[in-house]
Structures are given as structure tokens and as C-alpha cells.
């Protein structure tokens, strides 16, 4: 049996044997991951309209992968009851998918941060191309140590980004500081269903952490406790594992289809470590879902 401790980095135990990663190196690693995988994501997952680096949301009316990715934004927007006049901080904005969508669809003023400089450049270019440059500010920043005054935002938005924090509580503490009283937080992520895993299960867990540049995961109950500890109120959780599964299937099929290309280019030395790790996730993440080692859902809460 293996045990996944909170606030530890489990990626270093496999890809980087005998090297201790500092918090700074960890950040640099996540940054490099997304920079290395940018073209893979655009090729196999998102497109230049949705720019989504997340799982989609499939309801009975969803016809396509692209639609599911866009749906996800609307589901979060509705659940958090965001209004078009709200100033939103997109914490861990990736290449700007959600921020551009909110600015375009709802006219929200967006401030968006990521620790990857390259991502901010791509995001700013995409925002300009989609005509919302004046409504979106992109900055290179750590979401646990942001460059903003207290009570600067009406909404904090974290779509599959908080998982990248080594210490999820530190992120929530910073988010609480940044919100105005009455402000809302919406967090969408995967959560582990337990902390003990068999050796086989552990392999899949570690493959996913490495491939996603995620140091650790926490459970839904632990995350609820963290929100309570940081004084959030009206804490709600909506399980959307069923609506996410078709996306996990999609990723699995893409990985299987691309396997020959991956093997060949890896052998030729044309794939970076991050790209290869990201490919392996396609298979492993599917087992995490089907074996119910992870669940997927959306937290909303309010700063009183």
C-alpha cells in the first residue's frame, strides 16, 4: 500500500530521483510543462476558439468535444452566479480560454494570472485576435503570492488550476484576502476519493501527477475543511464526475490513437520529458476515473 500525504510533491519521487524540488523549482516545472505541451494541447485537445486546458462538461444536449469544453465555462459561471459587472480574477488562466470567453460572452472585466510567461503571451495574442484585449489583463504571477491589494475582486475563478498548488490552503488564504466581502470563489478540480492506494493504483496516480505537473491532490472533504478554516461560508460542492467521464474517454482514445506517433517520435528523441509524461496520462487518467480513485466537481463559496 502507498499513502498520498497532503502538501507533498510526489512527482520528484519518480521523474527526478534523489532531487529535492524547492517551491520555486516546482513552479518552474509546472511552467515548463505547459510551455512544452502548448502545441500538443492545441493539436489534440483544444482549438484556437476555446483554448481550453480542462475537461469538458457533457450534458444530454452536448454534441461535441469543443462544445463540452465551452459548456464548462458556462456551468461554472452559472453555479457561482457571476454577474457581467463582476471583476473576475482567473487564477491559473492557462492560455486564456475562460478569461476570453467571459469577456466575450458576458462582458466581464478580467484579470488573469499564470506563472508561465509564455502562456501570458499566447493568451494576450488570443485575446487581441478575439477582440477583447481591452477587457483582459494578463500577468505573470504566483496565485499564492499575487500582486494585488486586499479586496480587489468580486470573483476568484480556478478551473483545474488549484491542483497545481503544493499547499491548497495557501491558495485559499490568498483568495480570501483578494475577495471583497460578499465575493465568491469557484473552484473546479479533480479530488481523490481516498489516500491509500495499492501499488498498481499508485502507478496510475503518480503517472497522472507527473503528466499534469501536479504535486499532489486532496479529497473533497479535506478541501471543504480548508475552505472552512479560511473562513469561507456557503460552501457548496457539485459532483460532476458523470458529466466529465466522456472527456476522460475522449482523452483515452486520443492517447491510444496517437500511441504509434508518440513511440516513434520519442524513439527519435523529438519529444520532451513533459510531452511524454503528458501522453502517458491519457491512459492512466482513464483508470483513475473508472476505478473511482478520483471524483470531479465544483466548489463554490462566499467571503462573508
Amino acid at each position: 500500500m502507498q499513502y498520498l500525504e497532503p502538501n507533498n510533491d510526489y512527482r520528484s519521487s519518480t521523474l527526478r530521483k534523489d532531487t529535492e524540488l524547492s517551491a520555486d523549482k516546482l513552479k518552474a516545472d509546472a511552467e515548463k510543462h505547459y510551455d512544452d505541451c502548448y502545441h500538443d494541447y492545441l493539436f489534440a485537445w483544444c482549438n484556437k476558439e476555446n483554448l481550453a486546458l480542462h475537461y469538458g462538461y457533457w450534458d444530454k444536449n452536448t454534441k461535441s468535444h469543443h462544445q463540452a469544453l465551452i459548456n464548462k465555462n458556462q456551468v461554472l459561471y452559472d453555479l457561482a452566479n457571476i454577474s457581467p459587472t463582476d471583476h473576475v480574477l482567473d487564477a491559473g488562466c492557462g492560455i486564456g480560454g475562460s478569461s476570453i470567453w467571459m469577456a466575450k460572452q458576458h462582458g466581464n472585466q478580467m484579470t488573469a494570472i499564470t506563472i508561465s510567461r509564455q502562456q501570458t503571451e499566447y493568451a494576450a495574442q488570443h485575446a487581441k485576435r478575439q477582440g477583447v484585449a481591452d477587457k483582459t489583463d494578463f500577468q505573470v504571477s504566483d496565485f499564492c503570492a499575487t500582486p494585488f491589494q486586499d479586496e480587489s475582486f468580486d470573483v476568484i475563478w480556478g478551473l483545474e488550476s488549484v491542483c497545481h498548488a503544493l499547499n491548497k490552503g495557501e491558495f485559499l488564504k490568498e483568495a480570501f484576502r483578494l475577495l471583497r466581502p460578499g465575493g465568491k470563489i469557484v473552484i473546479c478540480d479533480g479530488f481523490i476519493t481516498r489516500r491509500e492506494f495499492s501499488d498498481d493504483e499508485w502507478q496510475d496516480i503518480v503517472t497522472c501527477l507527473n503528466g499534469w505537473a501536479v504535486p499532489n491532490l486532496c479529497s473533497r472533504d479535506e478541501f471543504t475543511q480548508l475552505l472552512e478554516q479560511k473562513h469561507f461560508s456557503n460552501i457548496l460542492y457539485k459532483d460532476i464526475t458523470a458529466e466529465t467521464l466522456p472527456s476522460a474517454d475522449y482523452m483515452f482514445k486520443v492517447a491510444k490513437r496517437l500511441k504509434p506517433v508518440q513511440m516513434l517520435t520519442q524513439w527519435l528523441g523529438l519529444r520532451s520529458k513533459a510531452q511524454t509524461a503528458n501522453f502517458k496520462v491519457g491512459i492512466a487518467q482513464h483508470r483513475l476515473f473508472t476505478d473511482q480513485l478520483v471524483e470531479y466537481g465544483i466548489f463554490t463559496a462566499i467571503k462573508p
Binding site: 506563472i115 510567461r117 501570458t120 503571451e121 494576450a124 500577468q139 505573470v140 504571477s141 504566483d142 500582486p147
Partner: peptide, 24 residues
């Protein structure tokens, strides 16, 4: 640049994007 007098630091703005990391 964006200057913090208290910390004696200048954060660069590169191509219009503020880089707000201590290391940079």
C-alpha cells in the same frame, strides 16, 4: 517597470505584461 519602494525591487513589464515574480 513597477517599483516597490519597501522591498527595493523593480518588476519588469515585458511586451505590456507585468512579470510579478520575485525571481524576475
Amino acid at each position: 517597470e513597477l517599483i516597490c519602494k519597501a522591498d527595493h525591487l523593480a518588476f519588469p513589464i515585458r511586451d505590456g505584461i507585468p512579470v510579478m515574480l520575485e525571481d524576475d
